[in-house]
């Protein structure tokens, strides 16, 4: 192999690890630099051995290509904490759903195939977990590309901020812009999923027996109500994102949105059948009962805080009554 061939191969290899936009230019410059160095070090009569020595001095192709990249992140340090939380929640939800599913299968088969069913659930859990963690990662990578810069503090604000205006510790009105962007994205994705891909929404594949919708038509008829509730939330979160924190007016709107959400949840709860599988109807009703209870308590807490201007702390409230 002659010196030119060696240099061509090296330059080409570095180019493979460079972005297309700058590749040709960097390759041309690198070739010129290598030839200069080689010419100088060999006194004008380069041998392949000398060329190899020069290439070794320059460094491994991947190493040198990496030096030409600026700091690039798939998910930057501003979004990473939120990413970790979302991945954890996703995995926990998948885990819980699989446990519920396993319970359902064992209940149907009266526990005759407990080992097979458990193994199938474990495999399914890992498969689903990997796929969903991958999807979450992709979504965050897209958010990083699209909204990464807007997560920075605007330059004007960074220069003129007033330490006296720092929010009090544990200020519930403070927001994390990264988290809000993620919430907005998932709200939009969920609304789109329910409305534009109804076939994927609540269908179960029973192999040869075909695909069955898990939900009853009565439940499906409530999808527009769900969508309205999601859109209300989406508009509100966008407003909060723009304003940078919760204000009194957005808090009142939040109460209105939550009341509407509770109403929709109640309408689902009041249906005779949510799913064609009775077990799922019971499960869904149990979860909805908890959601309705917690939701009602939350609204009471919000109203208390809005009207009296201090946080709702049930423990302290009860204590003060007892004293």
């Amino acid at each position: 192999m002659d010196t030119n061939e060696l240099i061509d191969r090296y330059v080409n290899e570095v180019g493979q690890h460079l972005p297309r936009k700058t590749r040709a230019d960097i390759e041309m410059e690198l070739r010129s630099l290598l030839l200069d160095t080689l010419e100088e070090q060999s006194g004008g009569e380069p041998t392949p051995k000398m060329a190899a020595e020069v290439l070794r001095e320059f460094g491994h192709p991947e190493e040198i290509a990496a030096q030409y990249h600026a700091d690039e992140y798939l998910i930057g340090p501003k979004l990473f904490p939120t990413y970790k939380v979302v991945v954890t929640i996703t995995l926990v939800v998948i885990g819980v759903l699989h446990l519920v599913g396993l319970g359902f299968v064992l209940w149907q088969s009266a526990g005759t195939d407990i080992i097979d069913d458990s193994l199938a659930t474990i495999f399914s859990f890992f498969r689903t977990a990997v796929i969903n963690a991958g999807i979450v990662t992709l979504v965050f990578a897209v958010i990083e590309r699209v909204a990464g810069d807007s997560l920075d503090v605007p330059q004007k604000q960074a220069k003129t901020w007033d330490p006296f205006e720092l929010p009090p510790v544990k200020d519930p009105d403070r927001i994390n812009r990264g988290e809000v962007v993620v919430e907005i994205f998932f709200l939009a994705a969920f609304a789109a999923w329910m409305n534009f891909f109804p076939n994927w929404f609540g269908a179960a594949n029973f192999g040869e027996e075909g695909i069955f919708a898990l939900f009853t038509p009565e439940f499906i008829a409530l999808v527009p109500w769900f969508t309205a509730s999601l859109l209300l939330d989406l508009v509100l979160k966008t407003a909060v994102f723009v304003q940078g924190r919760w204000y009194r007016i957005t808090r009142w709107l939040e109460v209105a949105k939550d009341l509407f959400g509770l109403y929709v949840a109640y309408r689902v709860f009041a249906l005779d059948e949510i799913s064609i599988v009775p077990f799922f109807t019971w499960g869904a009703k149990a979860i909805l009962a908890i959601v309705l209870l917690i939701g009602t308590l939350e609204i009471i807490g919000q109203l208390y805080r809005l009207l009296l201007g201090r946080p709702f702390t049930p423990k302290a409230f009860i204590k003060s009554r007892l004293v």
């Binding site: 410059e29 630099l33 001095e57 320059f58 190493e63 030096q67 030409y68």
Partner: peptide, 12 residues
């Protein structure tokens, strides 16, 4: 200064 550091630095 190593070539792998110098030349990318120039572009930066």
């Amino acid at each position: 200064i190593n070539e792998g550091t110098l030349y990318p630095l120039l572009r930066r």
